[in-house]
């Protein structure tokens, strides 16, 4: 894990029509769907949105260190039909900066995120031995939510240094007709 600058290395592959759809969906926001329906969206497009959101969060964190870049994968939607329904999960982390810097980043996030398209639903300290700082938020612009924790290095944590973890996940989407989500990872 090399030290990197602000943005991730990857470049999303965005085709014209998908971008158009993304804007359209972004404008409607999260809609209430029937249980057997979800917004139709191309997997590649949702993965691209995920990367965009992660980029934004990393900019707010504004720290350098050992960055574990996002692994973006196709996940399940409860027990719903795996052919039609999917969500995009993304996990990444940053270690290296001292605990107070990471906690500072957490503070920055809780201040800046509400101004950059996030609605913070929970924040504080976890009900754990380490009592790590955390927050949970929903995006107001995209159908995504996020869970961020600064995992402290306490005696029984297996850690020698703290780690800032970001778990980003989309709502459930539906693949376009003719495509299958089950084959995608």
């Amino acid at each position: 894990m090399a030290s990197v600058g602000v943005a991730f290395m990857g470049r999303p592959k965005i085709a014209f029509t998908a971008l158009f759809m993304a804007l359209a969906i972004g404008m409607t926001g999260c809609s209430s769907m029937a249980d057997n329906e979800s917004t139709v969206e191309d997997i590649g497009e949702v993965k691209a949105q995920s990367r965009g959101l992660s980029d934004g969060l990393l900019r707010i964190i504004d720290l350098e260190g050992d960055l574990k870049e996002p692994v973006t994968s196709v996940g399940t939607c409860g027990d719903k039909d795996a052919d039609k329904f999917y969500r995009i999960n993304s996990s990444w982390s940053l270690a290296g900066p001292p605990a107070q810097d990471l906690r500072g980043a957490m503070g920055r996030l809780s201040k800046v995120m509400p101004k950059s398209g996030w609605d913070i639903t929970e924040h504080g300290r976890e009900n754990s031995v380490a009592k790590s700082h955390y927050l949970k938020a929903n995006s107001t612009e995209r159908a995504f939510s996020v869970y961020i924790v600064v995992l402290e290095a306490s005696p029984n944590s297996g850690r020698t240094r703290p780690l800032l973890y970001v778990g980003l996940a989309s709502d459930c989407f539906q693949v376009p007709d003719g495509q299958s989500a089950r084959d995608k990872y």
């Binding site: 996940g75 031995v129 402290e152």
Partner: peptide, 25 residues
């Protein structure tokens, strides 16, 4: 295993031996 949930992260914390960070009910 859904979402960016505490439900999932707690499982992962056990898997990597980060017991102190498992949040309790």
């Amino acid at each position: 295993w859904d979402r960016d949930s505490e439900t999932l992260l707690n499982q992962a914390r056990v898997v990597v031996g980060d017991y102190d960070n498992v949040s309790r009910r």
